[in-house]
């Protein structure tokens, strides 16, 4: 059974069709990649799935067998669907610890938090899983580096004990070693049975992680399939990858 099911989802801004008739399914524990040129509606898709900051014009979203179209954004999060943002976002005037703790306290909603773990244990476990240095937890979020802020954003999503995570360009503006670490972190998160929907421009990340790949163009679905097939598709090469990109994709 599909964990996340998107049916004919569309979002219009006036005459502009940002997302148009997108449908796909993500199974439990799967890593599902989404690619496409800038402005092809990838982030808008995440926005309308999670209801932050706006909901879809038409179409339906099912999560864990329940329709989540049009319900309050924090309730979607309580059901176990967590997201991160393209820009490394944090509550800047709070410490890293407090950032994660907020996710731990408010994220699960009415769901019971796991076992008898204390708040501190849950926060530290999440930080450990994203390889965020424990000594940095007492720092203000605004004092952390870009990579640490990305780790922090992942930890604050992870601590909510989600069933699925929507990751919006986790590897953007990172160095090569940091990208390698990000791939490892996402694998570790996925190994805990959490399904992942991944928007990414960094091809090695996308191709080494995704089991299914969707390419969007002008808000519409260009191609959906196994990553190897998708990157060889001529339409995908023409619209997104380009010839060099296709060679890089082969290499990856």
């Amino acid at each position: 059974m599909a964990l996340l099911k998107i049916e004919n989802l569309s979002k219009n801004f006036g005459a502009l069709k940002a997302v148009s008739g997108v449908s796909f399914e993500v199974r439990k524990g799967q890593i599902f990649g989404i690619a496409g040129p800038n402005g092809s509606g990838k982030s808008t898709l995440f926005n309308i799935i999670t209801g932050v900051p706006f909901s879809a014009t038409s179409g339906a979203v099912w999560f864990n067998g329940q329709s989540i179209s049009g319900i309050a954004a924090q309730k979607i999060c309580h059901l176990g669907l967590a997201r991160t943002y393209q820009r490394e976002t944090a509550f800047d005037s709070l410490t890293a610890y407090q950032n994660i703790a907020l996710g731990a306290v408010f994220g699960p909603g009415e769901r019971e938090a796991t076992g008898a773990a204390t708040l501190e244990e849950r926060v530290c476990r999440a930080a450990e899983l994203v390889e965020l240095d424990r000594a940095r937890l007492a720092r203000k979020a605004s004092e952390l580096s870009i990579f640490e802020r990305k780790q922090l954003m992942l930890a604050s999503a992870l601590v909510m004990e989600p069933k699925a995570m929507l990751l919006d360009e986790p590897a953007s503006s990172l160095t090569k070693p940091e990208i390698a670490e990000t791939i490892r972190i996402i694998r570790n998160i996925n190994a805990r049975g959490i399904a992942i929907v991944l928007i990414e421009h960094v091809l090695p990340v996308l191709l080494s992680l995704s089991q299914r790949l969707l390419v969007l163009n002008h808000g519409e679905m260009l191609r959906l399939g196994a990553p190897d097939d998708v990157v060889r598709d001529e339409q995908v090469i023409a619209a997104y990858l380009g010839k060099r990109g296709a060679r890089d994709a082969e290499a990856a």
Binding site: P53, C77, T89, S93, F106
Partner: peptide
């Protein structure tokens, strides 16, 4: 802390389960 979080970034706070 959630009150400060909403001040810092309301959208992000909502996506961390804060009403």
């Amino acid at each position: 802390l959630s009150i400060v979080a909403l001040r810092d970034n309301a959208d992000y706070a909502v996506s961390r389960g804060i009403s």
